[in-house]
Design a protein around this nucleic acid. Structure first.
Lengths: 113, 113
DNA sequence: GTAAAACCTGACATTGACGTCAGGGGCAAG
DNA sequence: CTTGCCCCTGACGTCAATGTCAGGTTTTAC
């Protein structure tokens, strides 16, 4: 599939897809004319990238962590540590969001009276 | 208390506190010489602001929503709707983070073997 | 073969919550 | 009264993901 198809399938803009590639998150092959060509698996890949981005992981972090998701990759203890760090960060963020939700929910309830 | 005390008490930089004030999130009185002076309640206020910012609310949104937390404020249906919108957004974000956590936790588990 | 649609690279613009620096005052202690 | 520290405003810098525009090439459809 070409880049337009991938934007349609994922909702990510062409600009974003090129950016993901530039950051080493997404691979593409090129047609003789230089146009990007993606395998079908790219749809899932992009979706995953966007999920992680939405969770606040930086593209750099995703770059470090993603290869070991798709390819069976380098299992260094450094990477394991990195994963644990990110996991802790995400869990902190979840607790913080729970507090915020409670604050907002409390307000909404007040206004429902 | 002066701005330095408030930074010490909250962890927010002086720059941030001035920014919050500029955005209408935080009030201060001024000494004759023009220096900011805060009541003790400002500590809780700043903490709350930071919690909401960390949850991804913009300063504009917080500005719309905060008054009704501290002061007993204008209960317009518009505000109620706004609160519900933000609540929904935060809950979406929580689900998204749960997915991310599961992805990361799965990876961490793999590496624990 | 030609027009239209899709794509390319490269570069500058944007947004939000700050950092940081410059140049200048306020204020308590000695 | 001056020294040293805290504070002021204003303005420009930053960072990350993305928008956007320009100018040119490739692919598709007829």
């Amino acid at each position: 599939m070409r880049i337009g198809d991938l934007t349609a399938a994922t909702g990510a803009s062409a600009r974003s897809l090129r950016y993901y590639e530039e950051q080493g998150l997404l691979a593409s092959e090129r047609s003789p004319g230089g146009q990007r060509h993606y395998p079908d698996s790219a749809v899932a890949r992009v979706t995953l990238i966007r999920t992680l981005l939405a969770a606040g992981l930086s593209s750099g972090t995703i770059h470090d962590v993603l290869p070991c998701i798709s390819e069976e990759a380098i299992r260094t203890p450094w990477l394991a540590e990195r994963l644990r760090t990110e996991l802790a960060r995400v869990e902190d963020q979840i607790s913080s969001l729970h507090r915020t939700r409670d604050i907002l929910a409390g307000l909404v309830e007040q206004y429902a009276v």
